[in-house]
Simulated assay, not measured.
Amino acid sequence: MSVTINAHQLGRLIDKVRGHIGNEYVEVLHGIRLDVDATHLHAVASDRFTVAAARYRLNADEQGQEPWARTIPAAWLTPLRAWTSAHGGGDTITISTEPGYVVFGTGHTEIRIPVTDDQEFPNWRSLLTRIAANIPTKFTFPAVDSRMLARWADTDDVLRVHVTTDLTALMVFGEDFIGAQTPTRYTGVGSSGKSTFEEAFAQWPTLDDNNEALADMSTAMPVDDKRRYNPADTIPDMVEALLQQTLRSTSDLLGAPSEDPGAMASFALAGVNSWSAYRFLDALHKADPRLAAQTVAELAEELDAGDYSETAWEIAEKAGHDPQKWSDDYEAHLKKLAEKRASSVAAEAVR
């Protein structure tokens, strides 16, 4: 099983979908899927929230072959892309499969990438077909310049988008933001420059309409295998979590038994820290929304990694503090509390 493609087109396939690769906690999505059907070579990627597929039409003598698919692991994409770029854009690259490998080769060199032959991947054809089924086939819709879409990234907001009609501006709304983007005239399907969804979707005849496919992204994608604690990674989620923890800690404090000062202190400290974190986040968001969003996202990654305690220790040392003394003092404090509690229990027993 093999197909050919020139180096330029292979590089484009990789680049078009690479930004949609899932993280390492979802192994089946942590890479790019090469999927060959009777007419096209596809590169597909998904991060569970987006799915992207790019295609390249096979040469006539390569069409009609038995379909096959393999996932190129994310770790191999950088060397594969570098190897591809080292060739002239017009150089022919043959992509073939062997047990446990996908082989990319020219007449002079090759790169062999280890893969899992029977690794599964979401049924992206059926998934996209089911999503498309919700769009009226006669719907006329605007075309937008994908390079301009990146300009909305600096709004630091979760944006809502309203698609109007063909050749009419796209409306964009954020919490404290509003905008519009002028469409571009589409010159592909239809000589008039207009295109209905039916015309556009017809250009993908190899997508199927499997009625047994799962209906939406939330259920069709594999489960994230990372630890079950999911830290907030957006400002609205973080604000909700901090305020919720503040109120929950206050409730726990009021309900804590008075004879357990340790529990009362823990609840009080949790409430104080949550409220303090909220106030700092609120101030940072007002002063620099972009930095606030970046900080929350980075914090979520640090909490998810679970090594923030070691990092805090290193930061404390670099700042001139003695974290070992802090640890020793705290252990001594806990020992005193335990001794005091034991003494109190013994006194009660004597009475």
Rank of each mutant, 00 (worst) to 15 (best):
T137K: 12
T39S: 08
E199D: 01
G306N: 06
S309E: 09
E331G: 03
A316Q: 01
D154R: 12
G179L: 13
Q65S: 11
M217H: 10
E302Q: 15
V28R: 10
V158G: 07
D304M: 09
I111D: 06
V51P: 05
G306W: 08
L127G: 01
T137H: 12
I32C: 04
L253D: 05
L214C: 09
D118K: 14
H87I: 12
W76E: 13
E110G: 11
A54G: 05
I135Q: 02
M264L: 15
W124M: 02
V17H: 00
D15A: 15
A300W: 04
A60K: 07
G188H: 08
A7L: 08
T109M: 04
S343M: 14
G255M: 13
N23K: 11
A38V: 11
T84Q: 00
A45Y: 06
R48L: 02
P67W: 13
A256F: 05
D166A: 08
Y186C: 01
V102L: 13
A347P: 07
E110P: 01
A215Q: 10
S258D: 15
K138H: 15
D35L: 02
P289G: 02
D225E: 14
T84M: 03
K325W: 04
M171F: 15
G11C: 08
T4L: 00
S249E: 03
I113A: 00
E317W: 01
H8R: 15
S327W: 03
E339I: 07
I21P: 01
L170A: 05
T295H: 05
Q119G: 01
L170W: 01
D208P: 02
F49Y: 14
V223I: 15
D176M: 09
G19A: 14
S126W: 09
R48C: 06
Q9N: 15
E24A: 13
A169V: 09
D61S: 07
I72C: 04
G193E: 07
L269R: 04
D237S: 14
T78H: 12
L128A: 11
P261M: 05
M238N: 07
S126E: 09
G188I: 06
G64S: 00
I113G: 07
G193R: 05
L334S: 03
V44G: 01
I5C: 02
P289Q: 00
E317G: 03
K318L: 14
D328T: 07
L13W: 04
E314W: 13
T187L: 11
T250H: 15
A43C: 03
G271N: 04
L291F: 10
A268K: 00
E301G: 10
L128K: 09
Y25I: 00
S343Q: 14
H20D: 11
Q245S: 12
N59D: 14
R248M: 11
V17T: 06
A202I: 00
P183Q: 09
V161G: 14
V163H: 02
A53Q: 01
L149K: 08
Y330F: 06
T206G: 08
V189C: 03
D224L: 07
A180C: 13
R33E: 04
V26A: 10
K138A: 15
R279S: 11
P99Q: 10
A7W: 03
L41Q: 01
T295A: 12
P99S: 11
P114M: 11
H162L: 13
A241S: 15
D47P: 05
S276I: 11
S309F: 09
Y25H: 11
P79C: 09
E62I: 11
R227Q: 11
F173C: 05
K286W: 06
H321M: 09
D47V: 10
K335N: 01
K194W: 12
L127T: 02
